[in-house]
Design a protein around this nucleic acid. Structure first.
Lengths: 251, 251
DNA sequence: TGAAGTTCGCAACCTTTGTTGGATTCAAAC
DNA sequence: GTTTGAATCCAACAAAGGTTGCGAACTTCA
């Protein structure tokens, strides 16, 4: 009864690339009731302090999670692209402590949280899959905290560019070392804890040192190794290898 | 067969204060094999890049999670106290992307990750409990990212003091608005993305404004409301209310 | 093709935070 | 007590980053 082009299949493939699932688990997931929604650029999918009861899975596009101060200053916590499950936390947490906003026209799938929770009870494999996703999110937050708290401006911007490049390359949105940057300098600034002007200065510096170049929104990473060194970027924090397996042969 | 003074009982009580467990789930948890260990102040329990296979539960003391830059600069990601399960992430992630270090003499319980994972398979209640813990961790990371990225120095320090006060009060380590600060100014600085000198300046400012006072390590919060306003502290991000329940009456 | 709205680039000036070096207090050990 | 080392405090100066304002370039859409 599963149709061929179930929009959940992209996420399923991503999960299974980390560890294959049983047929039961696969079917149970694909049977989740979903509601597709389309948002224009700069729409708030989830407002801060919302009591939401639906997770959302990005089919295609780009969103950020963010928090704001009473004076209006905004800190972006993470960016998410195709096949990212964004609001998993609303499955268990009652109130959302942050907002979610699009940075380009974006198609998302809304999934009821109770259905997600029930899935984790019926299929423990999914409990692990979602928990793993949450752990990776947390790892990225820690790295960003280091970025914003301790790296110098140019290192911060370099680090973010490499992370975005890394994420885009996994969903086929890069060509060699070229990609179109889906985020404005203003929003990069909000992610990196700098003013927009200083973010621009930092980009200039990266260009001067021959590390990147750009034509319009199309960026090119010209000296990947220098970028990595400058921003001490190590993709390990993105945990690309997938989860530990239960009772592995090694101690 | 469960002894009266099982050291796991503190954490169990904390979990059950959020939502009661079934007797089976309770017993299975208390039956986990554990190894108590004691550490002096400033010992590394987990090194960065370690491949660890044991979670640790703090029985009594204070630890931080942190990351360091190649140049030695350190960013503390979170502080943890009695009855916090600290390295839950090692249950699923293969390599630790951060270190864990004591800030006072600390007793921890080491629990094998495979045993933890098995528990989540046998008792789905525990899968939710641990997932919830991870989600709260992530929420705290987001708030700290906002702190470090966007708040002014004095607000950052104020916010951290309120969080520590809040956490200590939940484990009975406060008296009214007084508590002994378990962390040096140097380490507060590492948590807040400032230099130690500027952290000290910020503490002076809080004193000048009559918001806090201290004798030795004993701090007193003298104007709680002003502190909250100054640092836009709202304990909601600590999610004290516990998890959402499955299939609740409300839609 | 042209107009409006974004986004980007840049210079001058200002504010915050970092650095250095040293004095003082505090706590534990002798 | 005295000593020792850590933690705290403080002032002067340096550096990094923020702010403002404006103009150029690029998109989008009519």
């Amino acid at each position: 009864m599963i149709e061929r082009d179930n929009p959940l299949e992209g996420y399923l493939a991503k999960i299974e690339s980390r560890r294959p699932l049983s047929q039961d688990a696969r079917d149970a997931f694909l049977a989740l009731p979903v509601e597709p929604e389309h948002y224009d650029i700069y729409r708030e999918i989830v407002r801060e302090d919302d009591r939401t009861s639906r997770c959302c899975l990005i089919i295609q596009g780009c969103v950020s999670r963010f928090k704001t101060l009473p004076n209006g200053e905004r800190q972006i916590n993470s960016f998410h692209f195709d096949n990212d499950m964004v609001d998993l936390q609303s499955a268990l947490l009652l109130v959302s402590d942050h907002g979610i906003r699009t940075h380009s026209p974006t198609t998302v799938l809304r999934i009821d949280c109770n259905a997600v929770l029930q899935l984790t009870i019926d299929q423990p494999e999914w409990a692990h899959a979602f928990w793993f996703d949450t752990l990776v999110d947390a790892a990225v937050f820690r790295e960003w905290m280091l970025n914003v708290g301790r790296r110098v401006a140019v290192g911060r911007v370099g680090h973010l560019i490499l992370e975005i490049f890394h994420k885009l390359s996994r969903i086929g949105r890069t060509e060699g070392y070229k990609f179109v940057m889906p985020i404005t300098q203003n929003d990069l600034a909000d992610a990196v804890g700098l003013s927009a002007v200083h973010t621009n200065r930092s980009l200039q510096q990266l260009r001067e040192h021959g590390m990147i170049s750009s034509i319009g929104r199309t960026f090119s990473i010209d000296d990947f190794e220098a970028m990595k060194r400058l921003s001490s970027f190590d993709p390990a924090y993105l945990h690309p290898a997938g989860p530990r397996v239960v009772n592995p042969e090694c101690s």
